[in-house]
Simulated scan of single mutants.
Amino acid sequence: MNLALKSVLIFSIAISLPLAASTIIKPAPLVSIPSHDNFFDSIAMHCGKAFEGKVVFDNDPSDAFAQKLVMHVRKCTDTELQIPFHVGDDASRTWIITKTGSGLSLKHDHRNPDGSDDKSTMYGGHTVDAGYAQAQSFPADQYSKELFTRSGIPQSNGNTWQMFIYEESFTYRLVREGREFRVKFDLTKPVKAPKAPWGYAD
């Protein structure tokens, strides 16, 4: 190979490598569908506000939920909503709704009072269909099923979490065979926002 041709080849490779690299690392657009967007946006419009709720159905009642119940739409970005669920003085629970590009994810971030992760945390599910602008369902994902099995509660593998958002109310529902729990929040009467949940900072 003569020197001129060799120089041309080296130059061509040097030019093409940065172009190839930039093509490889270019992130894919985060796509979403109207029913997911509308559901997400309907919650996000309450960002910064807190609302009191009450248990409207529970076929296995617990005294814990007889306390004051408050949801706080605490932090919102274009792709994530953080919603602490305060049960009396227990600030261990935060619902996290995320746009994933293939739907919506719901995770339950559970913390200890010192802010460390609870042994059972980040369980939840992912949408498997379009749902509705007012309602979305999140069947338990594989991570959650494995966590529940290790924790000795395999019956929870059948969990589906549902959220309903209307002009005057927000409802969180857990359902599986033989088990149902629903708590409903009044969106017409904002209350004082609580302090940051455990593991988070104001």
Rank of each mutant, 00 (worst) to 15 (best):
N2W: 03
L3Q: 10
A4N: 05
S7V: 06
V8M: 12
F11N: 05
I15M: 12
L17V: 15
L17N: 07
S22E: 09
T23S: 15
I24H: 05
P27A: 09
P29A: 11
P29Q: 11
P29M: 06
L30W: 07
L30S: 04
V31K: 13
S32E: 12
S32N: 13
I33P: 02
S35E: 15
S35F: 03
N38T: 11
D41Y: 07
S42N: 14
C47Y: 00
G48L: 13
G48P: 11
K49D: 10
K49E: 13
K49L: 15
K49Q: 15
A50F: 10
F51Y: 15
G53V: 04
G53P: 05
V55S: 00
V56F: 03
F57W: 01
N59W: 03
D60N: 11
P61A: 04
P61W: 04
S62I: 05
D63M: 02
K68V: 06
L69D: 02
H72K: 00
V73L: 12
R74E: 09
C76K: 04
T77E: 03
T77F: 07
D78F: 01
E80Q: 14
L81A: 04
P84W: 01
D89C: 01
A91C: 02
S92N: 06
R93D: 03
R93Q: 06
I96G: 00
I96Q: 12
I96P: 01
I97G: 00
I97K: 03
K99E: 03
K99C: 04
G101A: 11
S102T: 12
S102Q: 14
G103N: 07
G103I: 10
L104V: 09
S105C: 05
K107I: 12
K107L: 15
D109V: 08
N112H: 13
G115W: 12
G115H: 12
D118K: 08
K119A: 13
K119S: 15
S120E: 14
T121H: 09
G124L: 07
G124T: 08
G125Y: 07
G125R: 10
D129E: 14
G131M: 09
Y132F: 14
Q134H: 13
S137D: 13
F138H: 10
A140Q: 09
Q142G: 03
Q142P: 00
S144G: 11
K145H: 04
L147C: 06
L147S: 08
F148W: 15
T149L: 08
G152S: 07
Q155F: 09
Q155T: 11
G158W: 03
G158V: 00
N159H: 07
W161S: 06
I165L: 06
I165D: 00
I165H: 01
E168V: 03
Y172M: 06
Y172F: 15
R173Q: 14
R173F: 00
V175C: 00
R176G: 01
R179H: 12
E180A: 05
F181W: 14
K184S: 11
T188Q: 05
P190M: 05
V191W: 10
V191D: 01
A193K: 05
P194G: 04
P194C: 04
P194F: 04
P194R: 05
P197W: 02
W198A: 07
G199T: 10
Y200I: 01
D202E: 15
